[in-house]
Amino acid sequence: MKLQPKALLFDLNGTMIDDMQFHTKAWHQILNEDLGATLSYEEVKGHMYGKNSEVLARIFGKEHFPEDRVTEISFEKERRYQKAYFEHLKLINGLDDVLERAHQHGIKMAVGSAAIPFNIDFVLDNLNIRQYFGAVVSADDVTESKPDPETFVKAAQLLGIDPADCVVLEDAPKGVEAARNAGMQCVVLTTTHEKDEFSAYDNILCFITDYTDPKVKELF
């Protein structure tokens, strides 16, 4: 698997931090208690990809809420998520070492996430890791969310690296599909989804539970 990529492109939630249950809980509360949906926890979990506006559109239909209300709901959801998750905020095991070793090897790095800047800043600044990333692509920076390749293609462009020389780190099938659509190989963390949920994709280098896995070192 030794590829010696020129760039590593990281998804954020579930990939750099193991926080997806906190997002799901926040959405479950807002969707059901505030907005009147009747979704189970598992049903909400199935919607945990893409922009917040896209989550609302999938559940309630497009244009159900005016744009200013979507923004209001989005920030309230993130406020609740951050309040609940803050005391648990930490990098997934071994990632601090991976970031430093990649930096020492001259490998460029970027964040490519469907999160809004409010949440990306919450992670990068509270964990003091912003200096490792030459580019950050958020929900606000793209027209189309994953599985569209725009997020990862834009990250590669900002770093000045050819897509074929990038390796994506992801935890979600839609993210792996986005990487494939961008012509990129992928390392999958099994923090959120099981291996069998990725059977449709042929661009997966390996599965890991965290960054202490010896397979990660083979990337350098």
Rank of each mutant, 00 (worst) to 15 (best):
L159E: 08
V136C: 04
G36S: 10
K146T: 01
L35C: 03
H103S: 13
E63G: 02
M20T: 11
A57T: 13
P117Y: 10
A179C: 03
K108Y: 02
L99N: 10
F22T: 09
K45F: 08
L205T: 08
Y41I: 08
K6W: 01
T143G: 09
K215G: 05
V153S: 13
D171F: 11
K108D: 01
P214F: 01
G112W: 04
P214A: 02
F22Y: 15
N119Q: 08
P5A: 04
Q157S: 10
W27T: 08
R69C: 02
A139S: 01
V137A: 06
G50I: 04
V70K: 01
V188A: 06
T212N: 10
V167C: 10
K6F: 00
G112I: 02
F152G: 03
R80W: 03
E218F: 03
F122K: 09
T71P: 00
A178G: 08
M16S: 07
Q157D: 10
K108E: 02
F122C: 12
D148N: 15
P66K: 01
E87C: 15
A155R: 08
I73D: 13
V188T: 04
T15R: 13
M16P: 06
L31P: 13
A178D: 09
L35G: 05
T192Q: 03
L3F: 12
F10V: 06
A115V: 06
K217P: 12
F86D: 15
K45D: 01
I208L: 00
P5K: 02
E177C: 01
Q29P: 00
D34H: 12
F86T: 15
S199F: 06
E72W: 05
D202H: 15
S53T: 14
A37H: 06
H23D: 02
G61T: 07
K51R: 14
L39W: 12
A155G: 09
R69S: 02
Q131E: 02
V168M: 04
Q104K: 15
A139K: 00
N128C: 08
T209E: 14
K174R: 11
N128M: 11
V168C: 03
K6S: 03
D68H: 13
F60H: 04
Y85H: 05
H64Q: 01
L3E: 11
F118H: 15
L189G: 12
F86Y: 15
A110M: 09
G112N: 03
